[in-house]
Each structure stands twice: as C-alpha cells, then as structure tokens.
Design a protein around this nucleic acid. Sequence first.
RNA 1: GCACCCGUAGCUCAGCUGGAUAGAGCGCUGCCCUCCGAAGGCAGAGGCCAGGGGUUCGAAUCCCUUCGGGUGCACCA
Length: 585
Amino acid sequence: MNIFRDFTTRVSSAVQVILAARGSEGADLSRIVVEPPRDAAHGDLSTNAAMVLAKPLGLKPRDLAEAIAGRLRDDADVASVEVAGPGFINIALAETYRAAALKGLIEAGEAYGRSTLGAGLKVNVEYVSANPTGPMHVGHCRGAVVGDALANLLDWAGFAVTKEYYINDAGGQVDVLARSAFLRYREALGEEIGAIPEGLYPGDYLKPVGVALVDVHGRTLLDMPESKWLPIVREAAISAMMLMIRDDLALLNVHHDVFFSERSLSGANGGKIASTIEDMEKKGFVYRGTLPPPKGQLPEDWEDREQLLFRATDVGDDIDRPLMKSDGSYTYFAGDVAYFKDKFDRGFRRMIYVLGADHGGYVKRLQAVGRAISGGTASVEVLLCQLVKLYRGGEPVRMSKRSGDFVTLRDVVEEVGRDAVRFMMLYRKSDAPLDFDFQKVTEQSKDNPVFYVQYGHARAASILRNAANDMPTLDLSATALANADLSLLSDQGEISLQRRLAEFPRIIEGASEAHEPHRIAFYLYELAAEFHQQWNRGKDLPQLRFINVEEPELTSARLALVHATKLVLSSGLLVLGVSAPEEMR
RNA sequence: GCACCCGUAGCUCAGCUGGAUAGAGCGCUGCCCUCCGAAGGCAGAGGCCAGGGGUUCGAAUCCCUUCGGGUGCACCA
C-alpha cells in the first residue's frame, strides 16, 4: 500500500470532476504530486494540484484549491483539508485510514515497499567489470556496492534485473598477465627470477598460478615458444584471477548473474564484433577516415591515421570514435559496441553502467552507441561514482601503485566488516567524493550511521523479545498485531513514526527512478532516528513506553508499530545488502 | 583549448526530479541523566544555498555566464 499513490489517484479524480463540470477536460494531470508536507504541522499529505493546473485553466490557484479541497472533504478517509500558502492543499488523514495503512503494512510483510513501477521490464546493470589481472582493490568497492544496491533497488521497483560483469579478457593487459604468470611458473620450477621487470605485474598473488601451472604442465611449457605457451598460461591465469575476484566480491555480498567475456565477442570470422560493425555499416554509421587532432595542446607524436570510424557525432557524441586501429585490428571500443549489441539482442532495452569517475569521458560515446544500434529504442544510463579517499583516525592513508602497497578490498572488509563498508559507500550521493575513515565506521555510537540504523533494528527485536517475556499471554504474531486496535496510537511521536513508515514505498520508487540508492540509506537513518527518539521519550514519560503491562491492548498496538518499524528497517537494509541484526554485540 | 561532475552552517553532508519559514550529524553553548528497556537525552546559537543574469505564480533545484575545485580528452585497456 502506497498512500501517496492512493491519494494522487483521489486528487486526480477530484480534479477531473471539477474539470468536467467546467467543460474543460484534457488537462495534463501528470504534474500533480502528492507528498509529505515540509512541516508536519500541515498534516499528513500535501498536493500542488491547484498550482500546476491553475494557469492552463485560467483560474486563480487558491480558488481552484478550494474547489478541490471541497471535494476531498467528502472523502471518508480524510479528517480535514486546508488550503495554505500560494495554493497548497494540505490533507489530514482520518484515524481509521491511518490505522488501516499500518495494518496493510504489517499484512504485506516483506513485500511492503515493493512496487510494480518497472512492469517487469528487463534492465541490465553492469558494474565492477574490473580487469582480471589481480585482486580487487579498495577503489573497486564503491562501484561494486553502488551497482549492487542499485540492482536490488530496481528489482524492488518491479524491473527484471540482470546483474552483469564484463570481463576484459581480450586486450594487451591479459598478455602482460600471462607473461607475469609465466615468470612465476619458472620460479615455481626452482629458477631464481630476481626482481620483477618493469611492466609486469609484481604481486605475490600470481605465485599460486605458477605452482598450478607446474602441477598441470610440468616443465613442458619451457620448451615452447612464447606464441605457444602464452595462450595456455593466459587462459589459466585469467580463470585464476576471476576466481579470486569472485571471492572478493562474495566478501562484499556482491553476486553477478552473468559474467560476460570480452574475448567471446571476437572468434571465427570476427564474431559478434564483425557482425555488429556490418550492421552499423548498413545504417550508415561507419566510414573510413581520419580524426582531427584534439584542440589545445597537440600530442607530440601526433600523426594522421586513416582508420575505420563510428560516426558518433550523428548521435550526440563530440567526436567520431575509432572501431579499428590503423593496423586493422579492432579497438577496445569495438568490443563495447558489440557487447551493447549483444545485450540488445538478449532483449534489454535499458542498460545501466556503473563506472568510476575516471570514465566520465566514456558516457557520451556509450550513449551514442545505444542510439545508433537501437535506433533510439533503448536507453543507456551511466552512473559515475566519484573516488573514495581513505583515512585512519583523520589521517589520509597513503597508497602507491608499487608492489603490494595498495589496500585491497579484502583488507578493508576484513578490518571493518562488510556491513560497514556497504553502508558507508551508500551513505553519500555517488557523484560526490567520499571520505572513508577506518576508525569512524567501526565506532559503536550514535555518530556512526551504520551502527545507529542496525541498532534500531536490534532494539525493535529486543523490545519484542522483552514483551514476550513480560506479557506471555500477548499474541505477537504478525496476524495478531495487524488486528490490534491501531487507532489507540495517538501520541504525536507514534503518529510521525507511522508517517515515516508510510513513505517507504515512495522512497523506493523515487530512488530507483533517480538511480540513487543513497536515498534509502538516508531514509533508514531518519526512520531509525525517529524510532530511537520515541523510545527515549519513554524514559521520562513511562506511559509512552512500548510495553505497558497494565494495558495489553495499547501495548499490542504499540508493538504493532515496533513490528512495522523492524520490518521496514529490515527491508531497507536488505536493499542495501546490509544485515539486520537481532541483537548488537 | 574542449567535455563531464562538484560548490549548501565552522567541519562532513542531505535537500524526495520547481513548492511553504533551506535540514541532519559532528563541533560549540546551556540544562538533564549516568538505578528503569543496552551503547545517553533535551534545548539553543550558527546560512547572501560560490557571484551575476534569465525562465515563472514560485528557483538551492531548470537555462546562460563568471569564479573556484575534481576528472577525462587519437590507434592503451
């Protein structure tokens, strides 16, 4: 149940009746919004209907507002309606309606907040897609968590989501990986390899790959020319790296549905890349030519090169993009194009890419690809995640690219825990840079939002446990609580908690439409704050406590509220991929 | 030189796709509690929403522009 949606419908039909009476149908009702009023004193709901419709109808906003308000007053679920300010219509809900909404929430249970907004439309969310050349480092965390939470969010909003990882297993970097692994192979055979040469991957994580190669191939690779051993070693190294990466992702509770290999796009007769380029050629998007040099400072080694180009400027990009290098081989970008075509052929019409901020230059060309291949029937949306700066007790953590001197994803998760990493990565807009302090995120205090929200859930669980203990005759099942006399909830704090709970479906829809999972994190924080606040009021005013042994009916109603709060906290945390503990340790 | 992102309280940040008197947490100030149901509670001060122009009933939010910060910019991946 979504009370905002419900009342958008009611307001719209009230408006339609008025319009029909005036003989002016056909006005645009889509801009009507029903939302929580800024100030709680204004009631439960507020709508701008009169203000957005007054002008096209040639009416004064307040006059129209009065007319709409008049009709809404006839609604049995409405306690009072007032027109305020420039033409806002403020609605206070009837006690019975509010009680019914809470009852509906409890009955919906874990489904509360789920929406049919997406109508089962297939959405592809691609995220992480780190090169398979080593373990994941901390820089990958944010994209992984944001992508994963966004995918969950879209799922809640009713889309059919596929979580996808693009394995860059085709470029020069995997050859470098193979050579690095080969060195470790020789090392495993007892050879003294000395310092790792410049340009190869130095990390120890390749040692087990070397050992495994010895197990399978013995010394036989040594006798082969590089052209023979390289594909063998490369294959082994890539699969070892991908296993490692999957383990790292699992530590963060990130699981993809599809791992898509870049290499699978080439293959016999050029494979998917060739056929995709052919397809684009038919549509007139491909030509041979040279690119103009970049404006500003000219690269020293600039030379004109004729190559196969994608006419991206026809579909919104700033410059045409190369599909083939001057030596006739395909560019990395050509793979991207074919990969998009593959997604399109698999029936996706919405592609979302979660990328690091350093890929900002990639957005326009991806969207150009989308337009060219789908003819405008598919959308490409890119979510850029800004960088994460690491701190320890306020001091920046220094990292360099040199061997072993970077913080891995595993380091971070093992030190502060999966929940803290996930929540903190989501407790910020993704287009804002993020400071991550190892010490602060493990603090158990109100200052730490992860703890604060999880504690809210644990506290709710604790209250229900205590109730079962103190009042053993009370039925605490969801069914029983849903059927309690919820109109007994009349305290201001209880009412505002109910209002907050009622917002959840709306927050899910808004966050998923905007691709902003952080809104869930902030919402949960506010919900937890409101809940803790109500709990605290019971300290000074014992009659406000959730458990009141003398008054079983009131207690049942309040426990229904606690149950509902616990439910929503748990669902919200589930979307974020953060656990909802029954007790804090 | 061009493109994209950002600029909101002393600090770190929200601001629900254009709504009412711009919010929260730290920090600061002042009370309360530290025996109740577990990691404190309540209140207060603090703002030219970077500057300027525009769009309209209405702008932190949309458009233009200036300034300041970040990122990226031919065949690498």
